[in-house]
């Protein structure tokens, strides 16, 4: 279970974890919409949101180090794009505005994704009327992510155990053929999954 880093804390048992998924999804959407649309001059609003999120975060019992770690990992992407905002009139204001907004939104989603198992998010998306086919595909995708990560790791290990040179081109080539092999295996596995689904009455 090396890859439980993906959803390590989504199964804790805090008041926030116990909230119905639909409530969490909708409130996430509300917080984000409000954060994005409120003008940056209303500083009190953003302080309020930040305070609220910090309290929520404390209630979830997820370690602070993890939450801020995730923020730190994801922030550079936002920062990279935000830099472009500087080259205009009022640039610094816009820069600060989008940086604050994106950080708060990021914080909200980190809380959502680490307090709600994906299976439950799918169930409530289904209730919201998301097409069944998309739900099926998302469920399959999430399920086999972990299997494919394992498979990729195994392939990679088997290859590195027999690789003795490290020229960059060789490395790219190796990685690319690993990806190719992963695809071939995925198509084979898809066939077997189809058989297993049919065996239990699918279509």
């Amino acid at each position: 279970m090396r890859h439980d880093f993906l959803d390590r804390y989504s199964r804790l048992n805090s008041p926030i974890h116990r909230l119905p998924t639909t409530v969490k999804l909708l409130s996430t959407l509300c917080i984000i919409s409000a954060t994005v649309t409120v003008h940056f001059t209303q500083v009190w609003f953003f302080i309020l949101v930040a305070g609220g999120l910090l309290i929520l975060s404390a209630l979830t019992t997820i370690p602070w180090r993890f939450v801020f770690g995730r923020l730190m990992v994801l922030e550079p992407f936002a920062l990279g794009i935000a830099v472009m905002a500087l080259f205009q009139e009022n640039g610094v204001f816009v820069f600060l505005s989008i940086l604050t907004k994106s950080t708060l939104c990021l914080f909200t989603v980190i809380l959502l994704s680490n307090t709600t198992p994906f299976a439950e998010i799918l169930l409530s998306l289904k209730r919201f009327g998301v097409p069944k086919l998309l739900i099926t595909i998302l469920a399959l995708m999430y399920r086999y992510l972990f299997v494919l990560i394992d498979e990729a790791e195994r392939l990679n290990r088997a290859r590195s155990s027999r690789t003795f040179s490290s020229s960059p081109f060789r490395k790219w080539n190796t990685m690319a053929s690993l990806i190719g092999q992963l695809f071939v295996r995925s198509t084979e596995r898809a066939e077997r999954i189809y058989a297993a689904m049919s065996a239990r009455g699918w279509r």
């Binding site: 399959l140 086999y144 992510l145 494919l148 990729a152 992963l182 995925s186 898809a190």
Partner: peptide, 18 residues
């Protein structure tokens, strides 16, 4: 082909991680 689409999505996801 439906399971293949699901698997392909997982495949692209993993390929992006490499």
């Amino acid at each position: 082909k439906i399971p293949l689409i699901g698997l392909a999505a997982a495949f692209i996801f993993v390929a992006q991680m490499l």
